[in-house]
């Protein structure tokens, strides 16, 4: 959870401070600082950012599991699978406890337990 906030929050906090200090009311001049700052400056909860982070990670999954995780080849489809099952699989990959696993442990280790849990929920919620 912590990790998510740091990157995205630190920019608006600083940028807003700079903005107030220099040039009047917020958002009157969209050119005031780099666009990526502008976009995330605002009333955003940690939950919303976490959900967005999960969506961004999930986009990478599509390259092997198909768009929205719906394609079944030798690589399984993941859309609409039970959340608990997906979560157990992802956490087991992360802990390198899946015999015969190939690329998934190397991928899962890059993400936090919460992010993997978020991915499980995300794909479980999609239509198969």
């Amino acid at each position: 959870m912590r990790k998510i906030g740091i990157f995205a929050f630190s920019i608006p906090v600083l940028a807003s401070a700079l903005f107030w200090w220099s040039s009047g009311p917020a958002h009157s001049d969209p050119q005031w600082v780099d666009s990526e700052v502008e976009v995330i400056a605002g009333d955003v909860s940690a939950e919303e950012l976490f959900e967005a982070r999960v969506e961004v990670i999930a986009m990478s999954c599509a390259a092997c599991h198909g768009t929205d995780g719906r394609l079944r080849t030798a690589i399984p489809a993941i859309a609409g699978r039970p959340e608990a099952l997906l979560n157990l699989q992802l956490q087991s990959f992360k802990q390198d406890r899946v015999p015969g696993a190939t690329v998934m442990p190397r991928i899962a280790r890059a993400y936090s337990e919460e992010e993997l849990q978020g991915l499980a929920a995300y794909f479980a919620a999609l239509d198969p």
Partner: peptide
């Protein structure tokens, strides 16, 4: 507004 960009970059956030 150039200087704002510059300052932000000095903080390394937009580096």
């Amino acid at each position: 507004m150039q200087n704002i960009r510059l300052i932000a970059m000095m903080f390394g956030l937009l580096a």
